[in-house]
Computed example of a mutant assay.
Amino acid sequence: MTSLAGNVNNENGIFRLEANFSPSLWGNIFSNSTRNNQISEKVIEEIEGLKEEVKHMIISTTTTSNDIEQKVHLIDTLERLGIYYHFEKEIEDQLSKMFDQNVIHEEDDLYKIALYFRLFRQHGYPISSGMFLY
Results as ranks from 00 to 15, higher is better:
S129F: 02
Y125G: 00
S128A: 04
S60C: 02
G49D: 09
Y85C: 06
S96N: 10
N102Q: 15
G130P: 03
N102Y: 15
I58E: 03
I127F: 05
H73G: 04
Q70E: 15
T62E: 10
Y134N: 07
E90L: 11
H86Q: 10
D100R: 12
F117G: 02
Q101T: 04
Y84L: 14
I91S: 07
Y111I: 12
R121L: 08
S65L: 08
F87R: 10
F87Y: 11
T63Y: 07
S128P: 00
Q101S: 13
D100W: 05
H73W: 08
E53V: 02
S96A: 10
Y111M: 02
H86P: 03
L110W: 05
I127C: 00
F87V: 15
L74T: 07
Y84K: 11
E52W: 05
E79F: 08
L81M: 12
Y125M: 02
E52R: 15
E79C: 08
K89R: 09
D108Q: 03
H123R: 04
L81P: 08
L119V: 12
V72C: 03
F132C: 01
L81C: 07
D100M: 14
E88L: 10
T62M: 11
L95F: 07
I59V: 11
E88K: 15
L95E: 10
T64S: 09
H56L: 06
F120R: 03
I91R: 03
R118F: 10
M57G: 05
H86A: 09
I59H: 00
I83G: 04
Q70H: 15
D67A: 14
K55W: 05
L95K: 11
H123G: 00
G82C: 14
A114D: 03
F132Y: 03
E48C: 01
H73Q: 13
T64Q: 02
F117D: 07
L110S: 07
E92A: 15
T61D: 09
I75F: 08
I75M: 12
I127T: 04
Y134G: 08
E106L: 14
D109Q: 08
V103R: 12
G82E: 02
N66Q: 15
I113P: 01
E92G: 09
I91A: 12
L115A: 01
E92R: 13
F120E: 00
R80L: 13
I104W: 04
K89S: 09
S65Q: 03
H56A: 13
Y85G: 14
Y111Q: 06
Q70G: 13
I113S: 01
K97I: 14
F87L: 05
